[in-house]
Amino acid sequence: MHPIPSRRRWIGLACAALCAAPLAWASGYPDKPVKLVVPYPPGGPTDIVARVVAQKLQEQMGQPFVVDNRPGAGANIGAEAVARSTPDGYTLVVATTAHAINPSLFARLNYSITKDFAPVSQLTSGPLVIVTSPATPVSNVKELIALAKSKPGGLNYASSGNGQSTHLSAELFSAMAGVKMAHVPYKGSAPALTDVMGGQADLMFDTMLSSMPHVKAGKLKALAVTSGQRSPSAPDIPTVAESGLPGYEAIAWNGLLAPAGTPPEVVNRLSAELKKVLENPEVRQRFEAQGFSATWNTPAAYASFLQAEVDKWDKVVKTSGAKID
């Protein structure tokens, strides 16, 4: 047989194999357990979201999705570990609003949220809720702004910590409303809410998960939610924008990131599987019970959202002067 056709045939087969490789890689993924790093302690809102998603991905993809809690340093320890991991789709991180805030807040970070990760999809979005003691003499956002303007710096607001979304959402509010309020940071939502209920702090921008049980029990008064639309979990509570401060929006969100360099075929496979998870009625109901909405988007759309969040919170951090060394 003449050698040239044989060589051509071999080259053709090799090319076909190479072209099919990415497809085979994606269809064969995952063939071992996948680690979902949660940069917060067990039991919190992000951990709850991660465990629901992990369970459903495991059911759909036939391999264990294992939640690995790595809290600390403002959610940076877990994020940095994933940024430095092998980019093969087997180590992922559940990111939050804090990861969009941290580039501006921390003087030194050992990773870049926009350069060291491949965005997969958002998972949830949800508002904070402005709560006050029932004794505070305001019942809506307009009255809160008027009270704050009547005594500059005289109102104080609690937060779950310096630089957290519960802090910077209030700073965004103050900047847009043209008011000054004193910030009192706490180590977590629970002690902060205790002082709001007791009248030691005037108000707080807090997650619905931790604050709404106290609202329902009559121990706190809810003025407004911080999202652009009313929350399905509490449709009677107006938004900040509709009740006194047009244009205001601040949401808490979770999303899934892979290390930069993860093959696009794997990222797209994960994104497609997440779309099924987040359209599942059971998942949507479970998230709504926590005050979240299930939110899917494409990797490109999530990348754009992430950059917009980084830019937005950069301005708020600079205005507030918040900094962590």
Rank of each mutant, 00 (worst) to 15 (best):
R230D: 15
G291R: 04
K275S: 10
P39Y: 02
L92M: 10
K219S: 15
M61Y: 12
S159P: 05
V52W: 02
S159G: 13
A50H: 11
T96R: 03
A192Y: 00
P30C: 12
V120F: 02
V179M: 04
V225F: 15
M212N: 12
V310A: 12
S293Q: 14
K151N: 14
N268A: 15
L220T: 08
E288Y: 03
G126H: 01
Q164L: 11
L36K: 02
A258V: 08
T97F: 01
E288F: 00
K312D: 09
D236G: 11
G255H: 08
A75M: 06
T298E: 08
I48N: 05
T207N: 09
S121D: 02
Q307P: 04
E282Y: 11
P263R: 07
W253C: 06
V94L: 13
N297R: 10
S150E: 11
K219L: 13
A17S: 12
L109C: 08
Q63Y: 01
A81E: 13
A146E: 14
W313Q: 07
D47F: 06
D88F: 02
P152M: 01
L105K: 05
K32S: 14
Q285D: 15
G163Y: 03
A118W: 03
P152V: 00
Q290D: 14
S139C: 04
L203C: 09
P259Q: 15
P119K: 04
S169Y: 07
P299I: 05
D31M: 03
T97D: 09
V37C: 04
K56N: 10
A75Q: 10
P232Q: 10
K151L: 04
I237V: 14
P42N: 05
T166M: 06
N102T: 05
S27R: 11
A260N: 15
L274F: 01
T132N: 09
H99Y: 03
M181A: 13
E249A: 15
G255Q: 09
L147Q: 09
V283C: 13
G153I: 00
G28V: 03
P235G: 14
N76C: 04
A224T: 12
V38R: 02
V131N: 00
A170R: 06
E242M: 04
D68F: 01
A224R: 12
L155D: 10
T132G: 13
A201R: 07
